[in-house]
Amino acid sequence: MASVRLAIVGLGKIARDQHLGAIEATDGIDLVAVASRHAQLDGVRCFHEIGDLLASGVEIDAVSLCTPPQGRFSQAKAALDAGKHVMLEKPPGATLSEVHALEALARARGLTLFSTWHSRAAAAVEPARALLAKRKIRSVAVEWKEDVRHWHPGQAWIWEPGGLGVFDPGINALSIVTHILPEKFHLTRSDLTFPANRAAPIAASLSFETDGGIPVLAEFDWRQTGPQTWDIRIDTDEGPVVLTHGGSRFFVDGEAQIIEADREYRNLYRDFVALVAAGRSDADFSPLVHVADAFMLGRRIQTAAFED
């Protein structure tokens, strides 16, 4: 199969920090165009928006959407209507109804839709999933705390409806937990802390329960400075299982099993190439379902105003 000719839509921080290098390092895919309202990239055709790109006649096979979730539905739909495969940065959309509509449209068009969860592509995730399938789980505790000013400087969209607030990083933890636990789980309690001047939460305290009654607790906070915390701790009948550093490090019964540098986005683009070649989609929206549930059951707690 010839290399996938790719266009990136949205050339912001995540595209420059992660996507460009991953594409360059991945066999079978070539970046040939960019659509961005605020930036250009040397060496490829550049357009102001996706409509201009699709109307230009530039030959592309696929589009990787790196824009904020609000407004992404129309971009993805335009790409699918034009016969292009689509890769969605997380979260896949602003609502569940729109991502399910995109899944149905991709299926009807015979195109690949890849709803990416970069934290699932971390080194420890699959080994943890395999190990937990063999152990009896007693409890799960998630601690995902980071500094919003460091990771999203000046980005107003994350505080608007559909931007998810602290669930922008928190959904990464949920993407791992939904993948590694043998049982499904559902939300039982949601406390959401909103700054007085923002429409999205800055912290969340969640309680879940698996189908078998196992407690799953999650604490998300966007106010942590200094070292960042991305930990998942599972108590099992044979000892503790711990994923740290966002899933790139893995400890079993206190012993280090995996310590690996970040290769998440390279793995995602490798998988995208394989999906396109096989004519398949990967559209698991379960992490977004849990976020939607958190807002539906959420008890609002107000805190001091947040200024970037």
Rank of each mutant, 00 (worst) to 15 (best):
A2Y: 00
S3F: 07
V9M: 00
L11A: 05
L11E: 02
G12I: 01
K13D: 15
D17V: 11
H19Y: 14
T26M: 08
L31C: 10
V32K: 00
V34D: 00
A39L: 06
R45Y: 00
D52S: 00
V58R: 00
V58M: 00
I60H: 00
D61R: 04
A62W: 05
S64G: 06
P68T: 13
G71V: 02
G71E: 03
A76R: 00
K77M: 11
A78D: 00
A79Q: 02
G83C: 04
K90S: 12
P91V: 13
P92C: 10
P92R: 05
G93A: 13
A94P: 03
A94Q: 06
E98P: 02
E98H: 01
H100G: 03
A101Q: 14
R107E: 15
T112D: 05
L113M: 07
S119F: 11
S119M: 14
A121K: 10
A128K: 02
L132R: 09
I137R: 03
I137Y: 07
I137C: 07
I137N: 05
A141F: 05
V142E: 06
V142M: 12
E146M: 14
E146F: 10
D147N: 15
D147E: 13
D147H: 13
V148Y: 12
H152Y: 15
P153L: 12
G154E: 10
W157Q: 11
I158F: 04
I158M: 11
W159T: 10
E160F: 01
P161T: 12
G163H: 05
G165C: 08
G170W: 06
L174A: 05
P182M: 09
E183G: 01
F185I: 07
T188D: 09
S190F: 04
S190P: 02
D191S: 14
L192V: 13
F194H: 09
A199M: 13
A200M: 15
A200W: 04
P201E: 07
I202D: 09
A203W: 03
L206G: 08
G212T: 14
A218H: 03
E219L: 13
F220H: 06
W222H: 13
R223W: 09
P227R: 09
P227G: 10
Q228V: 12
W230I: 07
I234H: 05
D235F: 03
D235K: 11
D237K: 08
E238C: 07
G239L: 06
G239T: 12
V241E: 08
H245T: 13
F250N: 06
F251A: 14
F251G: 03
V252A: 12
V252F: 13
D253F: 09
D253G: 09
G254T: 05
I258G: 10
I259W: 04
R266V: 15
R266A: 13
R270T: 14
F272K: 02
F272Q: 01
V273R: 12
A274R: 14
A274I: 04
V276H: 01
A277D: 13
R280C: 08
S281L: 11
S281Q: 10
S286V: 06
P287D: 11
L288P: 00
A292R: 09
A292C: 12
D293Y: 05
D293M: 11
F295A: 08
R299D: 12
T303H: 08
T303F: 04
A304R: 15
A305N: 08
A305E: 14
F306N: 04
F306S: 09
E307W: 11
